[in-house]
Design a protein around this nucleic acid. Structure first.
Lengths: 115, 115
DNA sequence: TTGACAGGTGACTAAATGGTCACCTATAGT
DNA sequence: ACTATAGGTGACCATTTAGTCACCTGTCAA
């Protein structure tokens, strides 16, 4: 039998978790490559291990990061579900197309700007 | 000539703005119905006018809310672009389908649960 | 033109948050 | 066995943030 881990994400925990730049960098790192250890993540940041650990705990409590133990290591994975739920809260199906198009347009204009 | 207001949203301002529950309720209110005044929004919250105003300023600085003056009133509108950009930061095109499907599945299971 | 109304500012307090450290537990490898 | 390594906890301090208030500006309508 398959059990699904609590996708149930308390709103507040998710948004509070995303509010810190260090934690967003951690998500970026996990977006690049999943399954990293604390040591690994720590090395990319100018902060003590304790700081990083605290941040990872907050991300985990929010459900943005899920973990798996492997021996004495703890592997971290990005869970995109809460992110999508933020999106769905304020962007309905009809607006989605417009917004994406607008962002694409903006990117295009900025591209032209650079050349 | 048309000038586009700064869609350029400093990351940090957006995430910090979203971190507060009152501000998320304000976005919910504007998602329901756009073009509200401060007075209007204030009446839906248990907080002084000053508190609400401060929150609206933070949302506006983040680009999540755009405003237009009309006489002595200030009308507030929800801008979904920054929300979509959060989404795009951690959910790539390929993952998008999976994640949406997973959320739909979850909603379906919860629906069954209730019946 | 005067009074009511919508919005705005700067200062202040209480609470929450980020970061560090001393100290602890568990696993790996020799 | 024992030493190095990966991870974990609770207390602590500095900074940031939410909320309120006294006071101010601009617009509407009788």
């Amino acid at each position: 039998m398959v059990t699904y881990s609590p996708i149930v994400t308390d709103d507040d925990l998710v948004f509070k978790a995303l509010a810190d730049p260090t934690r967003r960098i951690l998500l970026d790192l996990l977006f690049q490559r999943d399954g990293r250890t604390l040591k690994d993540l720590e090395s990319g940041l100018e902060m003590t291990r304790f700081g990083v650990m605290k941040h990872l705990k907050i991300l985990e409590d929010a459900g943005l990061v899920v973990t798996r133990r492997s021996g004495r290591e703890k592997l971290h994975f990005l869970n995109p579900v809460p992110i999508r739920m933020i999106h769905d809260r304020w962007i309905d199906k009809y607006r989605e197309r417009e917004v994406s198009a607008l962002i694409a347009l903006k990117a295009e204009l900025e591209e032209k700007d650079r050349s």
